[in-house]
Simulated scan of single mutants.
Amino acid sequence: MVTAVLGLDTRPQAMPHFRIRQQRSHSISMRATVAEPVVYTPPQVAAAYDFPQNVDCSGQCIGIIELGGGYSDENIGEYFASLGMAPPTLVAVAVDGGANQPTGDPNGPDGEVELDIEVAGAVAPGAKLAVYFAPNTDAGFLNALTTAIHDSTNKPEVISISWGGPENTWSQASIQAMNRALQDAAALGVTVCVAAGDSGSTDGENDGLYHVDFPASSPYALACGGTRLVVENGQIASEIVWNDGSQGGSTGEA
Results as ranks from 00 to 15, higher is better:
33 T>I: 13
217 S>V: 00
50 D>R: 12
51 F>R: 07
87 P>H: 04
22 Q>V: 07
222 L>E: 15
115 L>C: 05
199 S>V: 00
195 A>P: 02
222 L>C: 13
160 S>V: 12
80 F>Q: 07
80 F>P: 11
211 H>Q: 05
198 D>G: 07
202 T>M: 04
241 V>G: 11
167 E>H: 03
133 F>L: 07
5 V>C: 05
107 N>T: 15
129 L>Q: 05
191 T>Y: 08
102 P>I: 05
79 Y>E: 02
24 R>L: 15
198 D>M: 04
2 V>R: 11
221 A>G: 04
58 S>H: 06
195 A>N: 11
24 R>T: 10
102 P>K: 01
188 L>R: 13
36 E>N: 12
107 N>M: 13
241 V>A: 14
114 E>K: 06
16 P>Y: 05
134 A>G: 04
160 S>E: 08
161 I>C: 14
176 Q>M: 01
123 V>Q: 06
60 Q>P: 00
49 Y>K: 03
211 H>K: 03
185 A>E: 10
95 V>G: 04
229 L>H: 09
153 T>D: 09
214 F>G: 12
130 A>G: 11
82 S>P: 07
126 G>H: 05
51 F>I: 01
228 R>V: 01
135 P>T: 01
44 Q>P: 00
177 A>W: 03
22 Q>D: 09
50 D>T: 01
66 E>N: 06
78 E>S: 13
29 S>C: 10
115 L>D: 04
117 I>E: 09
225 G>W: 04
53 Q>W: 00
251 T>E: 10
207 D>R: 03
204 G>N: 07
58 S>R: 12
152 S>N: 10
26 H>Q: 12
90 L>T: 06
24 R>I: 13
101 Q>H: 09
245 G>N: 02
240 I>H: 11
226 G>T: 02
226 G>P: 00
83 L>W: 10
51 F>Q: 09
217 S>A: 15
124 A>W: 08
64 I>P: 12
188 L>A: 15
249 G>Y: 14
170 W>S: 03
112 E>C: 12
53 Q>S: 15
211 H>L: 04
188 L>W: 08
113 V>M: 07
37 P>N: 01
32 A>C: 03
74 E>Q: 14
234 G>C: 03
122 A>C: 04
119 V>H: 04
65 I>A: 06
74 E>N: 12
11 R>I: 01
90 L>E: 08
5 V>A: 12
145 L>G: 11
236 I>T: 03
222 L>N: 15
63 G>F: 06
50 D>K: 09
103 T>F: 08
116 D>S: 12
160 S>T: 06
245 G>Q: 02
31 R>S: 13
27 S>D: 14
248 G>H: 06
178 M>T: 10
171 S>Q: 04
223 A>P: 15
213 D>E: 04
167 E>Q: 13
106 P>Y: 03
17 H>A: 13
126 G>D: 10
6 L>N: 07
72 S>N: 07
1 M>I: 02
95 V>N: 10
57 C>F: 15
127 A>R: 01
69 G>P: 07
51 F>H: 13
252 G>Q: 02
45 V>D: 06
22 Q>H: 08
252 G>E: 06
213 D>C: 02
46 A>G: 08
82 S>T: 10
